[in-house]
Amino acid sequence: MAKEYRVDLDALDEVVRKLNGVLKDMNGTKGKAGSGTFLPPSSLGKKYEEHVMLHKAHGDMKKFIDSEIVDKIQSLVDEFGKKSKKTKEAYDDAEQDNKLH
């Protein structure tokens, strides 16, 4: 006798919806991280040797957080969401095929 597996398609669909919500929330966070952390050059003071270095370090860190953390997390969540959706659709198709036969 073949083993039978049961898949909760509603739960899988909920996973996809929640991941899409995470992506939507991350887009807002990414925008805030970029514009909400703007640092005008004069905010660190002027006329001292480290001024330019500090301002550049701030810009470099913003770029690093954006590209090495936020973008990678977004990509991971997006990929998992797409794979989850594809899996759910495959189970939906299999269920329909079983009903027809």
Results as ranks from 00 to 15, higher is better:
Glu49Arg: 08
Met53Thr: 14
Lys18Trp: 04
Asp71Ser: 15
Lys47Arg: 15
Glu95Ile: 04
Lys32Phe: 11
Pro40Phe: 02
Lys63Glu: 03
Gly45Ser: 01
Arg17Val: 12
Tyr48Ala: 02
Thr37Trp: 02
Asp13Pro: 01
Ser35Glu: 12
Asp25Ser: 13
Ser84Tyr: 05
Thr87Val: 13
His101Met: 08
Asp8Leu: 09
Gly81Gln: 06
Asp66Asn: 05
Ile73Ser: 00
Asp71Arg: 09
Gly28Ser: 00
His51Ala: 10
Gly34Tyr: 12
Ser43Asn: 04
Lys85Ile: 01
Gly28Val: 00
Pro40Ile: 04
Gly81Cys: 11
His101Lys: 14
Ile65Pro: 01
Glu79Ala: 12
Phe38His: 06
Glu95His: 10
Gly45Trp: 10
Ile73Lys: 00
Asp60Lys: 13
Tyr5Gln: 03
Phe80Gly: 05
Asp93Cys: 02
Phe80Ser: 05
Phe80Gln: 06
Lys46Met: 06
Ile73Pro: 00
His58Gln: 08
Ala33Phe: 14
Tyr91Phe: 12
Ala94Asn: 08
Ala2Arg: 11
Ile73Tyr: 07
Pro41Ile: 02
Lys24Glu: 13
Tyr48Arg: 06
Leu100Phe: 10
His58Leu: 03
Val7Ile: 15
Glu68Gly: 15
Glu79Trp: 05
Met61Gly: 02
Phe64Val: 05
Asp71Trp: 02
Gly31Pro: 03
Lys47Tyr: 15
Lys30Ala: 15
Phe38Ser: 11
Asp93His: 07
Glu79Gly: 14
Met26Gly: 00
Ser67Gln: 10
Phe80Met: 07
Ser42Lys: 13
Ala90Pro: 02
Asp78Gly: 06
Asp66Lys: 14
Tyr48Gly: 09
Asp25Met: 06
Ala11Met: 10
Arg6Tyr: 08
Phe80Ile: 07
Ser35Arg: 10
Leu23Lys: 02
